[in-house]
Structure formats: C-alpha cells, structure tokens
C-alpha cells in the first residue's frame, strides 16, 4: 500500500492531521525552554522560565488552590459516585429515570451549569470561595466517576458476593475483601479522570469562585495573565500541567483496560 500513489496520499493526509493537532503543542513546549522571552527567536535552551514560575507567588497560590479543589472534589465525587453506581446497578430495573438524571451534568454545557450554580449559590446566599468551586466540581465529577464505575459493574459477577456470604463472611467483610478489590481499578480510574477534569476546568470555577484573588485557580490565573500577552512563564506552566494530565490519563486508561479485560 505505501508504494501506491493513493497510499502515499493517505499517509500525507494523516501526517497533516496530526501536525495540525500537535504542532502547536510542540511549539508551546519548545518555547517554554527558549532562553529568549520573544516567541519569534530561538536563542538557546534554558529553564529560566521554570525558575521564574516557581518564584511567582500568584501562580503558586493559584496552583495550590487548584490542587485543593481537585483533591477535595475528586475525593467527594469518588465516594458518592461509587456508592451511586453500586446503588443504581443493584436496582437496575427500577432506576431508568435516575440514570438520565445522573449523566445529565456530563451533557449539559458547562456555561449553563456555571450560570445555574452561580444563581443557586446566590439565591441561598452562600458566600462563595474555594468551597463553592469544590461543590460545583463535585456536580460533574460525580457523573464521570459513576459512569466509569458502572461500566465495570455491568460485567461484575454478583454470585461472588453470595459465595463470600456462603463461606461465612459478613456483609462488611464481603465488601472490603471481595467487592471493593474487584472494582478498585475502575474506582481509581474514575478518580484520576475526575482529578484531571477538575484541574483544567475554567468556566464553572470562574463563575463560582466569588470575588477577589483568594480563590483563583490555575486556569483563571492563566486567563488573567494572558490578557497582557503570552509570556514564556505561561508556556512553562502549560507544559507542566499538560505533563501531569498526560500521566494521570495514561494511568486511568491502563487501569480501566485492566478491569475491562479481566
């Protein structure tokens, strides 16, 4: 095939598509190591922008906020999402309607969810800050964790729960020693997915953060900085965030493949 003209054309199109997707990212990563501050000229390899990044108090504060929001919303969503997935699966026949309700936050546009949450918090006069961002992120993370865990539960053999009970285990022991270990990879995969989604979420965080600098997250910080032009520091930050996301995503996929393959 690669010898024929048509085959070569197909390869060329494929290369063009991948270039379109990944060249900008490669350029960004490259510029983050550019000694010069200008995107127009390469003056040599340097990690000075990474050093500058680590001394920028605003960026570090925003990164800290993002990690707090991501960790807290992931923890809550993983707990609730797993419980929800199990509950829905156990009552599968009676929960068709519930299923649609669970997955709605995955489909509803972020901007709609953002406005709705903002109105909701204002209406209840809840003072806004990091805690409201956490609550807002739980809303969509819950749906994603639930979806991943449910996919695993669909192929779960419930007779092993009866077998455990038959062999003398209490309900709690059965959950700790049989059910959770079997679905653990799916729970971890769901949690990693939730964490990644939370880290780079902008719109909803922007709407539910409230006023002031105290609860600015990383995407909001980048947005604020970018209004004065793309600085190499942002390139360095973007490279770090992308690296962390890729690691998390790769882990999640690997775990999920292992559960589904079993």
């Amino acid at each position: 095939m690669p010898d024929s003209g048509a085959g070569r054309l197909v390869l060329l199109i494929l290369a063009a598509v991948f270039a379109f997707l990944y060249v900008p990212i490669a350029v960004l990563v490259g510029l983050s190591f550019n000694a010069s501050g200008l995107p127009t000229a390469w003056t040599g390899f340097s990690t000075r922008w990474y050093a500058a990044l680590l001394q920028n108090g605003e960026i570090l504060g925003a990164a800290r906020n993002t990690l707090i929001v991501a960790a807290a919303s992931t923890a809550i969503a993983t707990l609730l999402g797993t419980a929800l997935a199990v509950g829905v699966e156990l009552r599968r026949r009676r929960s068709r309607g519930i299923e649609a309700l669970i997955f709605a936050p995955m489909i509803i546009p972020d901007i709609v969810l953002a406005i709705a949450l903002l109105s909701f918090f204002s209406l209840l006069r809840i003072p806004m800050g990091l805690h409201t961002i956490v609550m807002a992120h739980v809303v969509f993370n819950l749906a994603f964790v639930c979806a991943v865990v449910r996919a695993r539960l669909k192929s779960f053999d419930w007779s092993i729960v009866e077998a455990s009970s038959d062999l003398g285990a209490s309900l709690v022991t059965t959950w700790v020693r049989v059910v959770l270990p079997v679905i653990a990879p799916a729970i971890v995969a769901g949690a990693l997915l939730a964490f990644t989604l939370s880290v780079d979420e902008f719109i909803i965080a922007f709407f539910t953060a409230g006023a002031g600098r105290a609860s600015i997250t990383l995407p909001m910080q980048v947005y604020a900085m970018i209004r004065f032009g793309v600085t190499p520091e942002i390139n360095a930050l973007a490279t770090l965030v992308m690296g962390a996301s890729l690691v998390a995503l790769a882990l999640a996929q690997r775990l999920n493949r292992r559960t589904l393959g079993a």
């Binding site: 053999d157 007779s159 092993i160 009866e162 077998a163 038959d166 062999l167 079997v182 079993a262």
Partner: peptide
Amino acid sequence: NLMFQSYALFP
C-alpha cells in the same frame, strides 16, 4: 456450603 453453577470464584 454451596458450589455455584458459575463457580463464583474470586477473580
């Protein structure tokens, strides 16, 4: 004790 038709071994 019951031996299950599907064997129900802990995977």
